[in-house]
Design a protein around this nucleic acid. Structure first.
Lengths: 215, 215
DNA sequence: TTCAAAAATCACCCAATGGGGTATTGTATC
DNA sequence: GATACAATACCCCATTGGGTGATTTTTGAA
């Protein structure tokens, strides 16, 4: 079985080089080459890649946005971000967009092939400089650990609705008006939400909601 | 120049094996082997390592705690965490304690040597499985980046004191008692603190205080 | 189908919190 | 001496948090 790789890369030289390397190596097929992310959905559907090699900096839709979208619609596709950036902000945005690995643009071809193979097999290749930034991010910080899997707080639909309005900054009275229920009922829902989220104030609840995408 | 490596590891077999490998390889010296972290300060001062190889699971002080302490007192020493854990919580605690790299216990000796060399030269080696957990941590999360440097909020001493008591969970009344001032004065201070921190609730203030070490 | 559990609704009480203002005193600093 | 600021203290009032109890509706399981 060959690994099907799609390339998103605005630089034609790099694009062609990557395509040549992939097609010239046993075990890899380049199933699509795209200069930007503007038609990503069609591109992905028609090329059916196993792995996407994504450039961060592209005209139109950025690689970060495209990564986010592919990740949403085709979560089974692994995305390998290639970057030249020393820009922490971009790196962390890319991390949050849900890529499977990070490789530097000036890594040699064999590193590229290794990394593609690694993500395809469920691994998570990270280039040294990205790894350093990531470790630096955690170092001496109290990162709030949201143990994955326990993000289901069993909020009812109504409770989610109320929480959403809280996140938007409404007070009890306006929430009551918007939801067509009484002030006291809003308060009851909020109390239940607090219990389920294990928090004791509006701001904590809002923070948890945003961090965990509950809103 | 040889790289001086100190080993913290409770398993004698592993400990001896690592020591033998290090002393048997050109470029590396094992300057100390310790079965636990109970005397870490003396151990570090006397062995003067460049790199510490740290086991997470140790009797007495855990590797995470010792890492934190070494990082506080001897920030120039690089710490390479070795772990068998699949335990996300431990991994992230270790990440936050400020280690420089992460290696798996069942990695082969040459990986160990490579990793030691890498951290010594300012790199950040991460084993595949740790990398995966780290990427998973960021995936699809809105990680809040606290821009370092803007942490001076010009709180007065009294205000810091009050904030500290707030972090400890005291309410206005007990803060008033502990500080020998009136309830209303506490409220005034709290209002000033909120303005200076640009927050609007106790929990936000406490969070900011903890994140930025203001308490 | 019936019964129990959970969700959604509403109400009342009370304490704590947050935001606004005002005011006095002392201590710097200019 | 004037100005600024910290620390102290009090007032009013809206909002929030926590507890208790109740009715109705929905849902799921026996």
């Amino acid at each position: 079985m060959e690994i099907r790789v799609a390339i998103f890369e605005d630089n034609k030289l790099v694009r062609d080089a990557l395509e040549a390397i992939l097609n010239g190596t046993a075990g890899y097929t380049c199933c699509g080459v795209f200069a930007d992310g503007n038609h990503w959905e069609n591109d992905i559907k028609r090329s059916t890649p196993d792995v996407v090699l994504m450039d961060i900096e592209m005209p139109g839709l950025s690689g970060i946005e495209v990564t986010q979208h592919i990740n949403d619609l085709f979560p089974e596709i692994k995305i390998l971000i290639q970057t030249v950036f020393n820009d922490s902000e971009k790196i962390f945005q890319a991390l949050c967009a849900g890529a499977s690995g990070y490789i530097l643009k000036n890594d040699p071809p064999n590193k590229y092939l290794e990394a593609i193979n690694e993500v395809y097999n469920g691994g998570a290749p990270i280039s040294a400089s990205v790894a350093k930034k990531v470790l630096g991010f955690f170092a001496n910080k109290n990162v709030v650990l949201t143990s994955p899997g326990s993000t289901d707080y069993q909020l009812s639909d109504r409770e989610k609705e109320i929480l959403h309005l809280m996140v938007e900054g409404h007070n009890y009275k306006t929430i009551a008006d918007k939801s067509f229920i009484s002030y006291e009922t809003v308060r009851t829902h909020v109390k239940h939400i607090y219990r389920k989220l294990h928090v004791a104030s509006r701001s904590e609840a809002v923070m948890k909601a945003i961090q965990q995408g509950l809103s």
